[in-house]
Amino acid sequence: MATRQIAGKTVTVNDEGFMTIPAEWTKEIAVEIAKEEGLPELTPTHWKIIEFSRQDAGAAGKSPTLRRITVGANVTTKDLFALFPKGPAKKVARIAGLGKPEGCV
């Protein structure tokens, strides 16, 4: 398992660059990864989605699917795709310090 430096912390990542230990995540890390993903600023709605995803992953043991996010965090599909454009599934998971979402919805 590789490690990398993000926002002054050393974190464990897998081959695809997803963090593998959710506990290593901090909000500063999220801000840094978001910049890498082309999101210069995280709005309160971005945070609502990130926090829901972390909470859900903590309970379910796996990264939530997009549909689980829209239903659980109460955001529309349109908004989710607008907030995390070009591939929200991986973007949300990466920024939230979680693995790739499992499941097909």
Partner: peptide
């Protein structure tokens, strides 16, 4: 937890 076809298709449209 797979949505019905109509709802699923609308999700795709909303996703672009």
């Amino acid at each position: 937890h797979v949505p019905p076809v109509s709802e699923y298709l609308q999700m795709l449209v909303d996703g672009g």
